[in-house]
Design a binder for these strands. Structure first.
Lengths: 144, 144
DNA sequence: TAAATAGTGGACAAAATTATCCAATATAAA
DNA sequence: TTTATATTGGATAATTTTGTCCACTATTTA
């Protein structure tokens, strides 16, 4: 479905969001431990999220990663997925054809369109904030 | 969504099915040209489909790949996907957690479950035969 | 201003996926 | 039975994705 990088990206975002709700900045190490991911690789992913203005990163002592509490509910899963995996999930053909649309559809174009549209809607309506709140309550998990 | 191998596998199956409806066996070369895929790689994929009893393969002159017309509507997309990509699509966690279920769910477990179940249902109800018939009619395309 | 800390960016390495090549095998037809 | 044809299977290569390492920059604190 998503690349491993994107999976780490979503998990990291949920963790950073949750900690931000508690007014805590987190270090790369914190993130990697919380989501059980390779630290150096996670660093690259956080860089992308930072450049896409999804998370903040501050250097130096007392630095770390964070998200603005006030903007947290505006951040949807779709932004994270787009920042890391681009738009292949939405626009790419399910059978890998370069040109595939209603005019010249692949054999499963219509069947896939239904699924994709649902996936898209889900990603666009699910905010990181609600995921962070459930995680904070101990209802969901980011490792194992 | 699927691996490239799986995409080729589905496209190849639709082509082979369509040709089988016309009582024609097709060679590896035919398949590769019809679906615009690397022949040698496609060969490996057809081997898997053959071992999973989804397609027939006959060696020697007049040999080639084919599908039994009588069993064609029993072959669903789900069999092909399973033969090539396994069951990660259904059972794997959307965020890559090794253990993720209703008891210990990842943050997007429930949201993904809805999508997955729809995808699963779609794959399990879509037969290669109907896809082949639409392709035969010129309604759908396997290349470009 | 010096030292310690934390993220950045570039080069590099490992693993997985995708793709190629070719000798071997099976089979139909001459 | 020989020849031509078509798939098979194993080795190998290229590419992409995933993951690591390390010197550098920015920033806070003493």
């Amino acid at each position: 479905m998503f690349s491993k990088a994107c999976e780490y990206g979503i998990r990291a975002s949920v963790f950073i969001a949750e900690q931000s709700l508690l007014d805590r900045k987190v270090s790369l190490k914190d993130v990697a431990e919380a989501i059980e991911s390779p630290a150096a690789y996670t660093s690259k992913i956080l860089q992308r999220l930072s450049k896409s203005n999804i998370i903040n990163s501050d250097k130096g002592p007392t630095g770390g990663f964070s998200m603005d509490k006030s903007e947290l509910e505006k951040v949807k899963l779709s932004s994270i997925v787009y920042a890391i995996d681009g738009d292949n999930i939405y626009n790419g053909c399910g059978l890998g054809l370069k040109k595939c649309n209603a005019d010249k559809p692949c054999p499963v174009h219509n069947q896939f369109k239904v699924i994709r549209d649902e996936l898209k809607k889900m990603l666009e309506t699910t905010s990181v904030k609600t995921l962070a709140i459930d995680f904070e309550k101990g209802l969901t998990f980011l490792r194992r």
